[in-house]
C-alpha cells in the first residue's frame, strides 16, 4: 500500500510547488500552497521546515542562500532530479488513495 500519511501529503505539496517554480524559500512555498489551493489547505507554517530539511537530507531538494526582492537573506530550495522522480511516485500513490477513498464513499 502506498504511503499516505499526512507527512507524505505535505511532502507531495512541497515537491509539486517546487516543480512549478524554479526556486523558492520556505515562506514562498507556504504562500504558493495557500494560493494554489484557494486557501483550502493551510499548513502550520513552522511544520514545513522539518519536512524541507528531511527532504533535503534525502536528496530530493537542494538549498542555497540568496537575497529576496525585499533584500532579505533567505534560504531558497529547488527540486533535484531525484526529487522529480519522487514527485512522480508520490503523485501516483496519491491518485491511488483518492481513487480508493472516492470509490469507498460512492459505494457506501
Amino acid at each position: 500500500m502506498a504511503k499516505n500519511d499526512l507527512q507524505g501529503t505535505l511532502d507531495l505539496l512541497v515537491l509539486k510547488t517546487l516543480s512549478q517554480s524554479r526556486e523558492l524559500h520556505g515562506y514562498g512555498i507556504v504562500l504558493h500552497i495557500q494560493r494554489a489551493s484557494d486557501e483550502l489547505l493551510r499548513v502550520e507554517e513552522g511544520s514545513l521546515y522539518p519536512a524541507l530539511h528531511r527532504m533535503e537530507q534525502s536528496g530530493w531538494i537542494s538549498s542555497e542562500w540568496a537575497m529576496t526582492e525585499t533584500n532579505r537573506k533567505a534560504k531558497y530550495y529547488k527540486l533535484t532530479p531525484a526529487g522529480r522522480k519522487q514527485l512522480q511516485d508520490a503523485e501516483k500513490s496519491f491518485e491511488q488513495l483518492v481513487k480508493g477513498v472516492r470509490a469507498m464513499l460512492r459505494y457506501a
Binding site: 515562506y27 521546515y49 525585499t70 537573506k73
Partner: peptide
C-alpha cells in the same frame, strides 16, 4: 545522505545558526 548527515553532526553549531536564521527570515517576511 549518510555522509551528509554525519557531516552535519560534526558542524552542529553552524547548522543551528543557519536554522535560526532561516526560521527568523520566514517570520519576518
Amino acid at each position: 545522505s549518510l555522509v551528509r548527515r554525519i557531516a552535519n553532526l560534526l558542524i552542529r553549531s553552524r547548522i543551528d545558526r543557519e536554522i535560526d536564521e532561516e526560521l527568523r527570515s520566514h517570520l519576518e517576511m
